[in-house]
Write a protein that binds this DNA or RNA. Structure first.
Lengths: 248, 248
DNA sequence: CGTCATGTTGAGCGTCATCAACAGGAGTGG
DNA sequence: CCACTCCTGTTGATGACGCTCAACATGACG
């Protein structure tokens, strides 16, 4: 178990990768982290309309941001893993415009808005790193718009899987085995449908048609990554915002 | 005509509305603005893959961000008006992940990345305002994901029109006439299709079906705004990030 | 052993894409 | 002034993609 002083390790580590966060700024974050809380699968960590006074940092587990339409349809608008603060936006707004929901059991810690503002004043590099974090999310959101608006069912699914493979692999959360690549997959087919804007039934049929290239069960197994990327028309440009400029 | 010292007026004005930008920070922006350039309708102001060394500030006209899939389909991922810096993201990335294209004749000015960084160091409030700007865009992008993934054709169109009516009205770019509301509309039906993820033909038919509530020609005229909002299931929550916290 | 959540399959139908044709206005050149 | 082209909007016909309703299979769990 981490000592309280290294509780924020995954978060700081991620910010360092994205933005070359200097060590002092990372330590400042460690000092203002408070508490650890566990959420169960399905729990809303933050709900639409809330006005939280702290930011949540995901230490372990999968989380999604999502909105529900007037007709009751839920759309997942983002997927987040360990090392992210999905409600950072709450620092500047008086009311959340979306929900943040646990897709797996989640362990999280917190940073009060007040203390975070102070830390950012003392360490402008911290503010910049967090800003860059929001730009990473924005780039991903743009590509999801393309996915939802301009690709058909099977390619939508294929594209999302390519993206997740890359994002997870980058943070050591994917496994390679020869050419193939696999990672944990906690979403149901219904949830995948809410993510790609398709009905459960259609997701099911699309997944079956994709077997041979990918298999999606408790884990995603991509048997032939280049082929899947070619099929999806996947271009990872938009994920390069997640790499610090100095790191290539 | 504005003197060079007030060239950035619309931009500063917007940042003040969003983030209570202090006057000194606004003046700093005025001092580092350089040049004015005109773009023709259809011009790419920034292209996918570019690595610009300056930010572009739109002084007049409509602009969209967009991406093109491997299959050649274009998806419009954002609409921007006067007073915005649509390529702010370029400050932190080595290569743009999308295009920024003029939808009308556009007048723009520029701020070099280096000078902007200096100004942000001297005026942390400026950095924060620009960060908030990116959060506004992110909130809109999330709702567009919902629109594309969870609503059908006619409601998608209706929803976008409700959003634009509110955003434009907020900056004095819409006209009221009794209950009805109207604003400039420079997009072709094909472009609207690229925005809502529908074919041109289907956009055409949907627009005809919506007549009576909205009419979309050179201007959009919403005859009965509440009825359109009810039909679209429009909830303006997500646009409240565009209002400074102190302003309500 | 019943219940519940998830995945799977079939049938029927609606939304929306595609292909094709045409109308009108704007701009161009003869 | 007319012929021509290009761009945009409009309309029809056809079929594919994806939704909905329904039923059933399976495994986890109490």
């Amino acid at each position: 178990m981490h000592s309280p002083d290294h509780r924020m390790f995954v978060f700081v580590n991620r910010l360092q990768k994205i933005a070359n966060l200097p060590p002092e700024a990372g330590e400042a974050l460690e000092h203002i982290a408070s508490g650890i809380k566990n959420f169960a699968k399905g729990d809303d960590i933050v709900s639409h309309g809330d006005d939280p006074q702290h930011c949540t940092v995901i230490l372990e587990g999968w989380v999604c941001s999502n909105k529900v339409t007037a007709e009751g349809k839920r759309q997942i608008t983002g997927l987040h893993f360990a090392g992210i603060a999905p409600d950072l936006q709450g620092l500047f707004t008086s009311s959340m415009d979306h929900n943040i929901t646990a897709l797996t059991p989640v362990r999280a810690s917190f940073v009060s808005h007040g203390e975070l503002r102070k830390a950012m004043e003392e360490h402008p590099a911290l503010a910049q790193a967090l800003w860059q974090e929001t730009l990473v999310e924005a780039a991903i959101a743009r590509e999801w718009e393309v996915n939802l608006g301009a690709r058909r069912g099977m390619k939508r699914i294929a594209h999302i899987l390519c993206e997740l493979a890359l994002r997870l692999d980058r943070f050591g959360l994917a496994e390679r085995e020869g050419p193939s690549l696999s990672f944990e997959w906690p979403l149901t087919q219904t949830e995948l449908g809410e993510l790609v804007g398709l009905s459960t039934v259609h997701v099911n049929r699309s997944l079956m048609a994709l077997r041979g290239i990918v298999e999606v069960l408790d884990r995603v197994k991509i048997y032939d990554p280049p082929r899947l990327e070619a099929y999806a028309g996947f271009n990872p440009d938009y994920l390069s915002t997640e790499l610090a400029q100095g790191s290539d």
